[in-house]
Design a protein around this nucleic acid. Structure first.
Lengths: 181, 181, 181, 181
DNA sequence: TTTT
DNA sequence: TTTT
């Protein structure tokens, strides 16, 4: 109910690979995504520079299933979650630490990146089957006072379907053995 | 379950007045807070400038009760929520709009950092009695999927449908005359 | 340099109309966008409910120009900015208040919404001419567009010094009659 | 100017130790902070559970100096920044990765809410030496402590304790053996 | 109306 | 290692 602190991460980036979805013994899904965000700037010499940051994102349950179904390599996605560093042992028995973003909210961007119908986009939040987690942002209309309604609500409609998303950077190959991420 | 879009606000500021707490017919608490954030900068003349922004924040249920109990004029607080503009009519019958931050997460600041006693500070998130809304950030160890099955729901979660969503919103009557904020 | 408080808004939504871009006497661009975010949930009766929230977003300088060039009705966009409520007088001389999101960072989603090549997407932030980094939250009164001319305009904001900051943003003339948004 | 993606972290937590401040050859300060955020919940058995997450935070220049001057073990602070994972080699020559939060905005919490004196609190953001505004998300390589001296390393540096940090940044001597964080 |  |  009460905790001390805020631990929030928000990223908008592209998947370097298709999501990896596994299932727990209890049937819950777990998805691992590798998402890239990049920033570019000019250095002192006026040279354009770019740096790509790869984020390891983990999702559970329904969110994991949705990711596995709608996201793929190259997909652009908005992720909201928290940071979590877990400890593990490598083959030599050394302690290792891997930091991941545990997602609790996801918004697929750009609709179709494979150009078809319209869909495959939307905001999904953790919404445990029993009644756990979740997020409030979208929670019911909390106080929803509205009333009339009126205009504009049509909502605007998005569009952006034809997203020919990209090759993205780096093949992102490898990620071998010992590397936690 | 799914929504399109992200609507998030994060502020850290000070209360301009003690929280105003009211109770709905159904017994739920509603709190209204006026929170200031300010920024300062130097203008071209090198003059120090400052601008204060006042935010109208609304909280419901448990969060409202906690605010009423622990916050007061001058308190520094971290608020996370969403924007919501509601329409109302002024005395002349004109449509008016007021934008508020509907909070779903609160972190009282200012614990003792000067090493003395301790006090009421901590992070509180919407955690409806029935089991609605809420936020995930703090949700149980969300990563913790494995294992059993159900668990986790402990607090964290909310479940979105069984949301006894509420009438909540209460007409929001009152708020006097003409001033929206 | 130092300010008290944090005032941050993050939304991902769709434009309800094409951006409205105007130019200040000093040549700086100002763009007004109407962006929708929506959330859906099931009420107690199990009925699917939806609520759309419309956000008024204002951008300055370079960001405004980019918005005018690449965004259109329906475009999905990520916006980061701060809340700002400005006071104005309606025709009856009554005080009115309108809350806007002053954007300092924008990320066009979904690449092409018109289906062509790949592009038209990317993250743009307020970035002073000298080419530093920037962001507005704390930045000087990023909204501060007006005034002279010159500098900083690069994009909206930053620079913390030469900001001819302002007495708030432009009168915001125009916007018709009575409706604040 | 333009980048693809958003990489943002927001935490509110307490320092586990006094900040470690070092200076680069070029005179720029670099601070390493270890900040804890915790969440609590009840497990299936109704047992109160708690999990603490430790975040490694790195700041540069002015922000680093302010942190060194005003923060200390136990201080509560709001941090906004971006995630950055740097690669380094351990003694066995294995690749290791450490994820840090490169801060570009800081708000010291805990001013007096109990009405007494006043103190060192406030929001400080990255503000390049030339005195512009700044922020890092998009900012150029904000970590890029320009100037000479091996700049950019700026970023890697830190390590707050056991970091066998890497070549990257600065000598970054010390920091023991194998543990990255 | 807060805070610095 | 913090904090509650």
């Amino acid at each position: 109910m009460a905790s001390r602190g805020v631990n929030k991460v928000i990223i908008v980036g592209n998947l370097g690979n298709d999501p990896e979805v596994r299932y727990m013994p209890n049937g819950n899904a777990v998805a691992n995504l590798s998402i890239a965000t990049s920033e570019s700037w000019k250095d002192q010499q006026g040279q354009q520079q770019e740096r790509t940051e790869w984020h390891r994102v983990t999702m559970y349950r329904r969110l994991a299933e949705i990711a596995g179904e709608y996201l793929k390599k190259g997909s652009q996605v908005f992720i909201e979650g928290k940071l979590q560093t877990r400890k593990w042992q490598d083959q030599q028995g050394n302690d290792r630490y891997t930091t991941e973003i545990i997602a609790d909210n996801m918004q697929m961007m750009g609709g179709r990146n494979d150009s078809q119908g319209q869909n495959g986009q939307g905001n999904y939040q953790q919404r445990p089957q029993n009644n756990q987690s979740v997020q409030s942002n979208q929670s019911p209309p909390s106080q929803a006072p509205q009333g009339t309604g009126g205009f504009n609500q049509g909502q605007s409609a998005p569009s952006n379907q034809p997203t020919n998303t990209p090759k993205m950077s780096e093949p992102d190959i490898d990620f071998d053995d010992d590397i936690p991420f």
